[in-house]
Design a protein around this nucleic acid. Structure first.
Lengths: 223, 223
DNA sequence: CGATGGCCTTGATCTGGATCAAGTCGGCGG
DNA sequence: CCGCCGACTTGATCCAGATCAAGGCCATCG
């Protein structure tokens, strides 16, 4: 029994693996690798073969897409305890997007084959993966809906609401420009929309951090 | 053995169930229900508890979201052999979107509990579901990317490219207004963008149907 | 066979948000 | 303490695409 290796403990803490069998955790932990990245460094590139399932141990990571004309869209921002690139790890296809370190980052990778082996062997694990995928998919549907139907100010209000639940989003490294790329707009528009929310009384600026002062009002502005 | 009931044969034909055990197919087929809808009729409404996993036998179905101010965004269009509302069927949560019949429709539902029971009992089935969810999720990522980064003409070009592969999309019932709601724009913009594609030589109008004349050019316009 | 009602096209105008262009603020290194 | 640099704000202008407003084109039906 070597389930108390640091990697195994980390894996056990992830929602994916909470109910997985010890044997599978152990097998994956043995084959997992730890890596460090400096702020701004690329972790992987869209279209390349995937290293496997990533998990964040320390720092902030953005997963994003780039358009031919230089535009960047940030699909999601991850922090400690989050896993990412599960798609490529599950089907073995190339990375669906790129990932980069926002801050200095420590992260682990479980090689695709190790993950797929565990999935094939462990029915409980497969069910956990289904649950995670379903949750992520609901997120994505909400995101598409936002882009399709809501103006920038409403999208920003929703982002701020998410921020109260998700610690990965509330961090000084999450700049206006980053939020803008996540909401498919520009840093200038974020600035102006923040002022709109402020003059509506929903938020306040304390130093340079945003404080939500009227949650119901913010929900209202998010529609 | 009653695996030759019409419902069982239909289930066996779905990608989800291609590798599922006979016993599970049989159990689900017994509990499945067939329903008919007239053109325009609602199949289910966002936020309500889900009836289960739907599959289209005949006709065209749209799954969509409505914004408070009346805007409609069509997430996806389904045809014969497609399954929909898998999210709600998998997690038992309320419907993530609404669905309506575009044409007259014949469809089947597997109750949530029947589907979840089968999933819990059959590891192969769980793995199939994972594969399907991963594929759908890649679709969604591409869709978000489209909305975030590409102008209307490029989105339309991509839609036309999808249409060659997916028979559900190439059908007279798929009107400009429907395409518009799927691409988060208006029927007027679709009209104008079609003229752009036509004058670029990528497509041609034969009667009232669209014919792709220059596939590489269309790919180029889709970026 | 004329009327009616969808669906589509086309033009004119309007607008949310992008882009361009100066600043301002605060932190950090020298 | 000063100067620089990166992040933010604010204003002016611009533009893709939405909205508004007429028609035009079938297909269906009385």
């Amino acid at each position: 029994m070597m389930l108390d290796s640091p990697m195994a403990i980390m894996l056990r803490g992830l929602p994916y693996f909470a109910r997985a069998a010890d044997a599978q955790i152990e097998a994956m932990a043995e084959r997992a690798i730890r890596r460090e990245f400096t702020a701004g460094e690329m972790i992987y590139v869209e279209g390349e073969p995937s290293a496997g399932l990533w998990m964040v141990e320390r720092g902030r990571v953005k997963v994003f897409k780039v358009s031919p004309d230089g535009g960047e869209y940030v699909l999601r921002i991850f922090g400690p305890g989050d896993t990412f690139n599960d798609l490529a790890a599950l089907d073995g296809a190339p990375n669906a997007a790129s990932a980069a370190a926002i801050t200095a980052v420590v992260a682990g990778v479980i090689p695709t084959t190790a993950f797929v082996d565990a999935l094939t062997a462990d029915h409980e694990l497969a069910l956990s993966v289904v649950r995670s995928l379903v949750a992520r998919q609901r997120q994505l549907v909400a995101q598409v809906e936002d882009l399709a139907l809501r103006p920038v100010t409403a999208r920003l209000a929703r982002f701020l609401l998410e921020q109260v639940a998700n610690p990965a989003l509330a961090h000084p490294s999450v700049t206006r420009a980053l939020i803008a790329n996540h909401l498919a707009t520009t840093s200038e528009s974020i600035s102006r929309s923040l002022r709109v929310l402020e003059s509506a009384g929903a938020i306040r600026f304390d130093r340079h951090t945003i404080v939500i002062t009227d949650l119901p009002a913010l929900r209202e502005l998010a529609q």
